[in-house]
Design a binder for these strands. Sequence first.
RNA 1: GCGGGUGUGGUUCAAUGGUAGAACGCGGGCUUCCCAAGCCUGAGACGAGGGUUCGAUUCCCUUCACCCGCUCCA
Length: 531
Amino acid sequence: MPELEANDLMEKVVSLCKRRGFIYQSSDIYGGITGFWDYGPLGAELKRNVKELWWRQIVLLRDDVAGLDATIIMHPKVWKASGHVDTFNDPMIDCKVCKGRFRADQVNEIPCPRHPKMSVAQCPCEKTAPRPFNLMFKTYVGPVADEESVAFLRPETAQAIFVQFRNVLETSRQKVPFGIAQIGKSFRNEVTPRNFTFRSREFEQMELEFFIKPDEAVEAEAGSVAEPNGSGHPGEPQRNWGWRAWLQYWVEERIRFYESIGLPRTSLVEYWQKPEELAHYARATVDILYKFPFGTQELEGIAARGDFDLSQHQQFSGKSMEVFDEETRNAFAKLDEEKRKALWQRFYENKKVDFGKRGCPEDQIDQRAREAADKLLRGTYIPHVIEPSAGVDRLVLALICNAYDEDKAPDEKGNLETRIVMRFHPRVAPIKVAVFPLLKNRPELVAKARQVRDLLRPHFAVFYDEAGAIGRRYRRQDEAGTPFGVTVDFDTLGEKGAALADTVTVRDRDTMRQERVKIGELVDWLRERLR
RNA sequence: GCGGGUGUGGUUCAAUGGUAGAACGCGGGCUUCCCAAGCCUGAGACGAGGGUUCGAUUCCCUUCACCCGCUCCA
């Protein structure tokens, strides 16, 4: 494709999305609503395919991940424990002059950026009144809208997984290491939704919380903790993997996934956050970015979060989030005294740091860290977690941007015309195969084509079309990204002899070349190419 | 949240203080033996609200949405 200006490309993508029914503005007839988008017929299929492929890859094809489907509204304490309420509930004051935003309770201490000798409270700049600034959508549960009934729409799906950790553990017969996966809607009242669907206020996430043993437990069991070699897929999980190896494993697994649905590796960027960028509870975070026309932006974040989340919920709920791990207990029992002591010490030191970060009272830190280290030696610990967290909508947008292409194709008279074609990977293509009678005014062709449609329909997403010239119908499907077009012609009816009878042409979206395939073999032929 | 820009059929664009046009697309019909062909025909728009005016899609105000730059982004 000739290099398009990024802005032009986005405009073309947005207009195609509307024209072909991938994405519309929410509440379009009322003028739209900022930050909300709807998926039309093709978009809905595309998005479903993405979610199903993720679920298949993460849950169905593995022994060690279980699924979950939790509610959007949860007990408000969930967001207390997670930190979402406190971090974002502070009233903020915006300065209209310097555009700064300050916590209302700090304006007396913070110097004004324009008048550094004065505090924000003292400076003459025009400022807004203090306003609550919380990115969580608030609602009320039950008929009375008072403070008692306040609840929030979840700003991420992850917390539901932590909250149901105990239940899943007990009913799924999983043992650490294992994961819990969930796909679902999340809501953030973003200040500035921007870039089409990239940052929306209502969006969908695909999140996995993969629970692993603390490194000290791994070392007790395996003798040492594997040092990942920096880059590349580390292969099948091993019992000596600590969090670093698991992190790398999931980064590579996820990149492979993106490649498997058609995003070339060259379109992706793997970004290891610098220590100063990390959230306070994160040990490491790797972003997988996609080179969107409007910039290289995050598709997925893979965070090593230690035991922060489960610990928080244990503290706030009073319910234990610990697991008893027989292997760990037995391993520690067999260790010599010196090694056991060394691992105890290391775990204890790490715990002290963690408790400190979580705001544990100074005078309790030491004792609680000791208790946790003692428990570890008896095989009881709070699992650590690796969290691959992906945005469905931004992935769909990436697939659409990646698929958009223009090339030149000859029309009926042989003149070259611009052809817009969505080069979706067949796995994600909304429609897998279109079926056409070559001409619609020949009842025999139409009848046969409908038979072929009915034959394929139980197996694939099929679109049947008999309107207009055959070339026009091919082009329509090019814009929908349909990888295959099946045409019933006169050969199919046996007019050129028995050898071609009951064969159809299959037209390839990308090459526009055709191949004759027997109707009886069509399902298998297509299935092989749609895998 | 701030500043700038843009809002006309599904899409992309025109014109106008006095009946809003086109191209492509879409529906129906004819035609057509493989890549947006042709013929006939049909449906379809001034983002919303207010104001000025005899009359507003056009001028003014407000609002909403989208785009660009800042800001924000657990």
